[in-house]
């Protein structure tokens, strides 16, 4: 069921469990990357670059630039081999912002 129905599950349906503590950013599992070049142009924040890796099977790999990543999730969908994972950005200073803390129920319909 669910993700197993498709060959490429893409972005997980729920945010990673640590989302309440740290902002998620994407990270590339370099061993999985096939250096297909699909993710860098898709990223609207210039957060993915291709780097040379002479020892890598494809000689290159995609790499996330953590400081540019906004955790939007689009790269997960661009990747044909699901080489992206979430990782907590522990360098982020403050805690998460919630609309409810700032205005009263503004997000209600």
């Amino acid at each position: 069921m669910g993700n197993e129905q498709t060959k490429y599950p893409g972005l997980p349906p729920l945010p990673p469990p640590f989302v309440k503590e740290f902002p998620p950013i994407a990270v590339v599992v370099e061993e999985k990357c096939i250096a297909c070049d699909r993710c860098p142009p898709l990223c609207f924040f210039d957060a993915i670059i291709m780097e040379n890796r002479p020892e890598h099977k494809y000689k290159r790999t995609a790499v996330v630039v953590p400081e540019n990543c906004t955790g939007c999730g689009l790269c997960f969908e661009a990747c044909p081999v699901d080489a992206f994972l979430w990782t907590p950005d522990k360098t982020a200073g403050s805690g998460p912002l919630r609309a409810a803390q700032e205005t009263d129920k503004d997000m209600d319909v």
Partner: peptide, 8 residues
């Protein structure tokens, strides 16, 4: 912005 922000 919420993270993630998009899903296809």
């Amino acid at each position: 912005w919420p993270r993630p922000r998009y899903k296809l």
